[in-house]
Amino acid sequence: MSFLITSRRAGLILLFACLAGAAAAQSPDAAAPGGDTPAGAWTAPRTPWGDPDLQGLWTNRTTTPLQRPAHLAHRETLTDIEAAIVDEEVTSRNDRAPAPGNPGTYNQFWWEMGSTVSGNRTSLIVDPPDGRVPPLTPKAVEAILASRAGRGPADSWEDRTLFERCITRGLPGAMIPGFYNHNYQIVQTPGQVAILIEMIHDVRIIPVDGRPHLHPAIRQWMGDSRGRWEGDTLVVETTNFSPKSRSHGFFESAGTLRLVERFTRVAPDTIDYRFTVDDPETYTRPWTAVIPMHRTDERIFEFACHEGNESIPGILGGHRAAEAEAEKEKVKP
């Protein structure tokens, strides 16, 4: 796979900043704790035709996990020193030798993890207050169990995630930082906002012209997005998700998801990005994450994923070889 890193140097500079001292570990969006717009001074720029201007290259890399780790269950934030320690730990563990039997993965050269988000939050999820994805509904649990009953981990490619298959990370998945290539480029024209997503390569072209959603017969992995401006904020509502999204791992959705995203430029180099997952068929309550996006000055590279996907044939082939081996063992006297 072409896992190209665009911002590694910037990542290292951030890392050094963190190691240099807790005071230096402040994220660039420190002026906007929790992502709130600071009072006064800042006036968001506008495009020549008068829309809020979100254009540019952005990255959302961070060491802050989507969900609050169990050992921090009662901690919404870290101290600056704790945050610096977490950042160092997350980056150094990538260079440790893998456990025996584990083929290992990319080392820190390939990963770019950034640092803890502003306000030292312990999770990107801010609602529910425990920082965790809420429990699935009984109906969703049943459907997931039924779809996986009697299946091994790699009977077919369909047992692997959409991400491993190089199809997409879907939504909101594609807007959540991963381990590398979490870069985005926003280009606006009158009536539309385009968000180029580096990872796996997706372009979200969001009409901001009041047109209706696609016919419900058209279901897509990335859904169908419509935008509107609310003051300085781009509000994007996405529906028409594929019902097959059920099978792709963490973000279980029965195609009933209604995703609402909000993009607000809160500083020259920061977009406050937040999304709310509203899917009563799947989750027992809606949930919201806040993920700052920071300006980067490096161009987006091609992410040719499927073209070099050795993972799927490797994983399936490995399982088939293991099964053949087990078969041989059985017939031995």
């Binding site: 696609l214 992995w221 399936l316």
Partner: peptide, 25 residues
Amino acid sequence: PDVQLLEFKCVEFVEELMYGHLKKG
């Protein structure tokens, strides 16, 4: 009117062709 690009994420249409021989059974 209202024309837009739709998804043609064709990876899922070629997996049987490319990996079918590696499916269980």
